[in-house]
């Protein structure tokens, strides 16, 4: 009798299972018919690294500091660059990344001091070979000369502004300085080469400049 009950119980469990799958049969399938239907990409979707083109300068801001090259765990970044004639800022002249090795960990983006790297949103980048050495400066080369010219203008402008400010401040301090210098000369005559007098004079100058 117990055996019969076991058999019946087993059969019922099978029918319960079949009823579940039967109900699922009439539901809408969850399969996405790729490649006819493409999935909707998440807002945080990220793909190959690229350089940002800033609106103010219409170019990238890589100063070839090599921070990303040093931090990359897959050793896939190759940068060359340095001082460019005419401007103070350093510029990268070669920036290639091997995306066959890149694991999109994002450490290069975290460590970049000028925040000039970001993820792109490339999708479905299938290829026929493994040659994925991409030159990230390709889209910036035409504008580079103009960038250097504009950067020089920006730097000269900034330098001029700085000079004007410094001159105004100096003029203001100049009057006070004259009074301070007379005081200092007097003190020096009295006390000779005294460290304390130098300190007082130095402090007074620093305080006013």
């Amino acid at each position: 009798m117990r055996y019969v009950r076991r058999v019946l119980g087993g059969l019922i469990s099978l029918f319960v299972g079949l009823s579940i799958t039967l109900r699922e049969l009439f539901k809408k399938p969850v399969t996405l018919q790729y490649p006819h239907e493409k999935p909707s990409l998440s807002p945080a979707y990220r793909s190959a690294i690229k350089l940002i083109r800033f609106d103010e300068t219409n170019s990238h801001d890589c100063v070839a500091c090599l921070a990303c090259q040093k931090i990359c765990p897959s050793f896939c970044i190759d940068i060359e660059g340095g001082k460019v004639e005419g401007i103070k800022k350093k510029r990268a002249t070669k920036f290639t990344m091997d995306f066959a090795l890149c694991s999109l960990c994002g450490l290069c983006i975290d460590v970049c001091p000028t925040v000039t790297l970001e993820y792109s949103k490339l999708y479905d980048e299938a290829g026929y070979n493994r040659d994925w050495n991409m030159d990230l400066l390709e889209e910036f080369t035409d504008y580079e000369e103009q960038f250097i010219t504009e950067q020089r203008e920006r730097e000269e402008k900034a330098a001029a502004e700085k000079k004007a400010k410094a001159a105004a401040a100096k003029a203001k301090a100049g009057k006070n300085e004259k009074a301070g210098k007379n005081e200092k000369a007097g003190k020096n005559e009295k006390a000779g080469k005294n460290e304390k007098a130098d300190k007082v004079g130095g402090q007074a100058e620093e305080g006013e400049a």
Binding site: S42, P43, A44, Y45, R46, S103, L104, C105, L107, Y119
Partner: peptide
């Protein structure tokens, strides 16, 4: 898939997160 999509919406990866 639902879990992977949820984590994808925040981290950008589905399986090997950094």
């Amino acid at each position: 898939e639902e879990i992977l999509d949820i984590l994808d919406s925040v981290t950008g990866s589905r399986l090997t997160y950094s």
